[in-house]
Design a binder for these strands. Structure first.
Length: 418
DNA sequence: CACCGTCAAGTCGCA
DNA sequence: TGCGACTTGACGGTG
């Protein structure tokens, strides 16, 4: 069982993906962007290895305009060494990667032009994974597409166009149920017909369920049959609804108790779970810790070192409770720990608590800061107190201090990222 | 340096 | 027939 996250990281330095608008594209610009993005990808992979995250979705934005005529540089040649180096790290660590073209890659469109571009886009995604030299268990996930007033015909177009794809693309392509057009029953029928694997997405299934009354575990077990040995373990997508936003919006963080409930219902380990959630790697680490058989409180202490100032800012009560919870070093109170973190994160941040946390962090610099820095910081605090500055101004100021004085503990803190 | 409109994509609902 | 909403993070121009 591997648990992973998609595309971006929170709180990991030098992992940002750059892009540009299409009118500004030129060769020099593209080389610069791609070089930056491959470095970022390598840093993400390094982070994943270090944190025992074995599943990761590579962003389609890795190569800007990767499937567009706007980008005609042979990036796979120019950067072949870099790709191979990253690919080695992926394989040596046993990580599994994937890619997922967006909602605008539509293979079953009635427009030949749209289909052509979808095929080009799938080729691009294949080229990225091939350049990494990773095997066919590293997949490209696609939705079926639109309906166009005739679902049966639309499905036939998908099947025909799939058959026209290059073999290297077919080897990696898997299909997923979506939130409005093709439910899991539809996608399973297509997957069985084409003999390709099907990804079950729990939130899409909840929003757009099949008329056939089947619980999600039964659907997951049905999907398992479509995964052949060369495809690797079955993969599913797991996400939770953000109750403050419209139907289908992903939650900020995975709720540990909901996830564990789902995980226990699965009742098996031969399955990989891709989390789709705003806080990305944070939820991945959380779910990995919640399901770990290696129960060492050190894992929670490491987590606490990153969360603590954010928790202090959100809820001083939960802060104290967590400190007490972690006192017994022979225990592994993982569910209680994350429950308290989640409680804290749901709290509204008050001005008093925000200042308290900021001053607490300021304590790290009390002895080393110059008089000028002290004056400047206290002035910002006053401005914030009087409603003349945003909290971000305080945080930016503290962040700059952390960078300047190389306070590694603070540089890793989610206080600055969440 | 903070802020916010724009971008890039295809589909679908609505006038 | 054509236009706006939908979605997302980053760009890029403005103040």
């Amino acid at each position: 069982m591997s648990i992973g996250y998609a595309c971006l990281t929170i709180g990991v330095l030098n992992t940002n993906l750059k892009s540009c608008v299409i009118k500004n594209v030129n060769e020099e610009k593209l080389l610069d962007l791609i070089s930056n993005n491959l470095n970022s990808l390598e840093n993400i992979i390094d982070y994943n290895v270090k944190n025992n995250i074995q599943l990761f979705r590579i962003s389609s934005d890795l190569i800007p305009f990767g499937s567009s005529p706007a980008n005609n540089i042979p990036w796979w040649n120019i950067f072949s060494e870099k790709f191979e180096q990253i690919g080695m790290k992926i394989q040596e660590s046993g990580m599994r990667v994937s890619m997922h073209p967006g909602q605008y890659t539509v293979l079953n469109s009635p427009s030949l032009d749209v289909v052509h571009r979808a095929m080009e886009d799938l080729k691009y995604h294949t080229k990225v994974l091939d350049s990494l030299r990773v095997g066919t268990e590293h997949k490209i996930v696609l939705h079926i597409g639109g309906i166009y007033n005739d679902k049966k015909q639309a499905i036939d177009r998908f099947i025909n166009n799939y058959n026209d794809l290059e073999e290297s693309v077919k080897q990696r392509l898997v299909i997923e149920n979506d939130d409005k057009s093709y439910n899991i029953k539809d996608v399973l029928e297509i997957g069985i017909k084409l003999n390709i694997p099907v990804i079950f997405d729990n939130l899409h299934n909840y929003i757009n369920s099949s008329k056939e009354e089947k619980n999600q575990i039964d659907w997951i077990n049905e999907c398992k049959k479509t995964w052949r040995p060369k495809d690797g373990n079955q993969k599913i997508h797991y996400s939770e609804q953000n109750i403050l936003k419209k139907t289908g919006s992903h939650s900020n963080s995975i709720k540990s108790n909901q996830f564990i409930n789902f995980y226990e219902c699965l009742g098996r380990n031969d399955i990989d779970i891709m989390l789709e959630v705003k806080d990305k790697n944070l939820s991945a680490v959380k779910c990995i810790n919640c399901t770990s058989t290696y129960k060492d409180i050190k894992a929670l202490e490491l987590e606490w070192s990153k969360y603590k100032y954010k928790v202090l800012e959100s809820s001083p009560n939960d802060y104290v409770e967590i400190r007490n919870l972690l006192k017994d070093k022979n225990n592994y109170p993982v569910m209680e720990f994350y429950k308290l973190i989640e409680n804290a994160m749901d709290e509204e941040i008050t001005i008093g608590n925000a200042i308290n946390a900021a001053l607490h962090i300021w304590g790290c610099f009390k002895k080393i800061a110059s008089d000028k820095e002290k004056m400047s910081f206290m002035k910002i605090i006053d401005e914030y107190k009087n409603g003349n500055a945003a909290i971000s101004k305080i945080k930016n100021s503290l962040w700059k201090m952390a960078v300047k004085y190389e306070e590694q503990y603070l540089l890793n803190s989610y206080y600055f990222m969440l």
